[in-house]
Design a protein around this nucleic acid. Structure first.
Lengths: 199, 199, 199, 199
DNA sequence: GATGAATGAGCGTTCATTCAT
DNA sequence: GATGAATGAACGCTCATTCAT
């Protein structure tokens, strides 16, 4: 990689870091491109060398964050229920740690019908589906487990906890609520599909 | 009520009707105050006789809609499980019928940390809490039912279904998913707390 | 006077009182007609029964205030220098007591080239001119006293003290400065024109 | 300085020149940003590249004007009384030459309690104070001259002449009045403090 | 790759004033 | 005399984006 390429990479990283902080403080709509670039000591035009539209930097930031999350989730091994709980709690812990504002911003962006994104929703769904499918493969789950329905129900629930947390203004712990669910209802929900050795 | 008051009421209704349609088509951000007023044949200033800010009309519309929903839910009677299912399915059917765009708009507005609204979230939570509490009172649910946790878990789920539906762009039926949940998982979820005569 | 006329008079007084307070707090530009009328419990249309334009109420208020001032000044008797000092200090004391904001507002309005008012400036000038002329008549001042020049110089000075006080944001006492001038420089200024019995 | 910077400077100058003329004709409130920019053949947004708010251009114009005035005043040398007279008459001549409307606008802006500006009032005061102090240093004025009181009295007077001129609508000469004062009263006012060689 | 001046459409909002009731 | 809904022109200001340098 040439020096120029390295410098370019550094510029992009600086932009994303500055944007992340500003968006956490003031939301994306409340943050102008100029603020982001000024915070990096570059000119506003430079922004467009790296991002086609202002919104793109928000997506880039969220991808960067979620990549880490997925890697952790895939690396984890253990019994099915533990894997499930690990995925769900890691999901909410991660988001809660990041920033309420960032999460709200993300919801706003992804509910906007004009902003199509390669869907994180689809990825989360696929992750859970894969997790359950692996349970079936390994014999931890019965063959007739309704994998698809289970997967999207759990995703619905996680997203709902996230949305309610956003709407509450962070009045309580998102991760706490996820753990509460995993303790209180998840075992009953999964029981019918678990093979004996797990039950 | 005098004629003048009636005329004023009519104007407000016209504004809300026009706004509802336009917002369904193009979202609130995509609809200008001028468009709304022109569609009613009133001047743009008239808008501000009835709504302090542009956003307020969106809230007014959603309140109007949800009032109906709550009335239906409270009117319904029957065994606890039926009341629960009725509330949840009516909730999603109602929203789905209204308009995807309107629902997305509502989510966007209510996730905005600056726009505080007397929370529909709180109302939904209270409705479900009340519903479950009535079950306990009537002896349909055991005395040690964790009413609060159940209530917010079901709200989380409903809001999650709504959010995922919004994010999918309406690719599938929101109400269908709620019904699916009620059929597949709700009985198992409630089973531990139901008194014999219901189970 | 009929009851109706009495009621009308009361309404007008209420409007002026409310306007005075609001303008003192927020300036005229920052006060809307609706605020004034709401503060009186009347409708906005009523305002226009008594004042043709919004600005007119400010003038009405200032006239009301200054009438009192002029009456006091004319009632006072004593040696010329005392009359002069009395007029000048009463002028600034009165204004200072009223309200900085009101004074600033008055300056703004009277510097506006579009708002012609029966000039208080002209009245102040006439007052001082009359005061000095009476001094000549009574033999307190020499016959060749440049009454006109003295009068407008003293008005210039008073208005200048007022303007500087306004610009300072009320950092010091307007009346104090007037008194300082009367003590320090006024005797020297008048000395050449005073007849022996006064000097 | 690069070509781009030169062009930017030229744009700013054009904006100020156009604004100056328009404000002289119609006052700041009567001049819209669009008028100013159209007169320069630039877009309305460009205005905000150089001035944060509409009002700022008025301040910029007045600073530009007064800078010249202060430079002249500081460059002038001669006996104290001459320096004093020069400062005062230059002050009023300069303002009178500029434009009545501009002067009225300036007063309006500087009496507005919300618009804080690095005070020209303070600068004028400092100028006169410095002028008198230099007189004391050079032995032209007695050591016990009340420099501060004299300075603010003369400033009060100058500002008062300006205000009265504004209020009169320019019916007479501002500079003429200042000269009249300098001829008629200034010598008597200063006499007690002048050292023999000057008197 | 970086710059930064220029763009310019677009919009929410205000509010003094009117007039039919 | 009082009402108050309706008016509607008017304007400041934002800011994502471009492109010549």
């Amino acid at each position: 990689m040439t020096n120029r390429q390295l410098a370019a990479q550094a510029t992009k990283r600086k932009l994303m870091a500055a944007a992340k902080q500003l968006v956490c403080e003031k939301g994306l709509a409340g943050t102008s491109v100029e603020e982001i670039t000024k915070a990096c000591g570059v000119s506003s035009g430079t922004f467009y060398t790296y991002f086609k539209r202002k919104e793109d930097i928000a997506q880039a930031i969220s991808w960067e964050m979620y990549r880490e999350l997925y890697q952790a989730a895939q690396a984890y091994d253990g019994p099915l229920m533990a894997r499930l709980v690990y995925f769900m709690t890691t999901f909410s812990e991660y988001i809660e740690k990041s920033s309420l504002k960032l999460c709200q911003e993300w919801v706003r962006n992804n509910v906007d019908p004009d902003l199509v994104e390669e869907s994180k929703l689809a990825m989360d769904l696929a992750s859970l589906r894969g997790l359950l499918a692996s349970g079936v493969e390994r014999g931890e789950l019965r063959g007739d487990t309704p994998v698809e329905v289970l997967a999207h129900t759990l995703v619905d629930l996680l997203y709902g906890q996230m949305l309610c947390w956003d709407m509450s203004g962070g009045d309580y712990s998102f991760a706490g609520r996820t753990r509460e669910f995993c303790d209180t209802f998840l075992p009953g929900l999964m029981a019918p599909y678990l093979n004996g050795k797990e039950g």
